[in-house]
């Protein structure tokens, strides 16, 4: 019984939250890695792109809620999501035309593009704060739980409750669908194949008649979709605050680099590696240890390796370890 309780506690406090967080990070890291693969620079504006997409979705959600349209037990934000994606795609395409295209034509060094993306980050940050303000916004509605802790306890008779939030379930399901669509697109469609070809070898791709501007435009649209979905899922699961999205930049980049920059599979694996380590290292293991160990050995302290305030340190340490021992990441990415 104690063993079962420990297992349930583990699932409740570690496995489920980490899986949802990992899916959000993976979606964010996929966007970063795609831009890196096709446009060949690290996009510092990605966190703020996520915030922008989430903001558009939130505004549409509020409008829908005001008009009395909801998705029943599901959050209304899911209906608003396509509008958010479209808005973000328009923004990114406009940014590309007005800002990035110039440097691409000049074949500027990647680091120049990184600095340009820093400017874009400032602008997006300003726009988001200007429109929706710097404060926390709540936009989740519908059922809060798929299984609540109390239902689970009455169902199984265990002491430990297992709760599965709707946002967590939706995160994982949406992430699986989005990733499946993305991989199908990359491997089975003509455009997707041309994107991979362009990423592998730009000159050869150009020689085979691939239109680079089309590839770039499609990339931005996909990135807009990934960033908006990641931003909305994160906002549903935790809450929406522009500054938090900016701070997500570090774990997202850590995921992309740990997996191998430019490798989509790597981005997903990296996202889960970072998320699981962050949650396990900052979780207080006292409860589980009390169930598993004999009473005499039960720990007095929280058995928490690091306080949650240091979660950035976890992404950072993993990043450093990978950089030291395998600089191209788990799935050897590209190295420009």
């Amino acid at each position: 019984m104690d063993f079962l309780n420990a297992l349930v506690a583990l699932a409740n406090f570690v496995l489920i939250p980490a899986t949802a967080y990992g899916a959000q990070l993976a979606l964010g890291a996929l966007g970063v890695t795609l831009i890196y693969g096709i446009l060949r620079f690290s996009n510092f504006a990605h966190g703020d792109t996520m915030a922008f997409g989430a903001m558009v979705t939130i505004l549409v959600t509020w409008w829908l809620q005001g008009a009395g349209i909801t998705a029943g037990p599901l959050p209304t934000a899911l209906i608003a999501l396509p509008v958010g994606i479209a808005g973000t795609a328009l923004l990114l395409l406009a940014m590309d035309r007005s800002i990035y295209a110039f440097y691409r034509a000049k074949k500027a060094k990647p680091v120049v593009l990184v600095i340009v993306s820093m400017g874009v980050m400032f602008m997006l940050n300003g726009i988001v704060r200007f429109i929706i303000g710097p404060d926390n916004q709540r936009f989740a509605d519908g059922e809060r739980f798929i299984i609540s802790a109390r239902d689970f306890k009455t169902m199984t008779g265990l002491d430990e409750g297992l709760s599965l939030k709707t946002s967590q379930g939706i995160t994982v399901v949406t992430a699986v669908i989005v990733v499946a669509l993305l991989f199908w697109f990359l491997t089975h469609t003509r455009t997707g194949k041309s994107m991979r070809a362009y990423s592998d070898n730009e000159d050869l791709a150009l020689l085979s008649g691939i239109n680079p501007e089309k590839v770039v435009a499609i990339t931005w649209i996909i990135v807009a979709a990934l960033a908006t979905v990641a931003g909305v899922l994160y906002g549903l699961d935790k809450s929406f605050k522009p500054f938090t999205y900016f701070q997500l930049l570090l774990p997202i980049f850590a995921s992309a680099i740990v997996g191998g920059l430019g490798s989509p599979v790597g981005a997903i694996v990296g996202g889960f590696v970072i998320a699981f380590s962050e949650v396990t290292v900052t979780y207080a293991w006292k409860k589980i240890a009390t169930y598993l160990l004999p009473d005499a050995w039960a720990p007095d302290s929280l058995v928490q390796l690091l306080s949650t305030d240091y979660k950035f340190a976890v992404s950072f340490v993993i990043l450093v370890i990978v950089l030291l021992f395998r600089p191209t990441g788990i799935f050897a990415g590209k190295s420009v």
């Binding site: 800002i99 110039f102 400017g119 980050m121 400032f122 602008m123 300003g126 429109i131």
Partner: peptide, 19 residues
């Protein structure tokens, strides 16, 4: 929201100077 204008302005200055 006027206070948040300055982030946007700084980004714009950076992008314009780089361009």
């Amino acid at each position: 929201s006027a206070a948040h204008m300055r982030l946007f302005t700084m980004g714009l200055i950076l992008v314009l100077v780089l361009r």
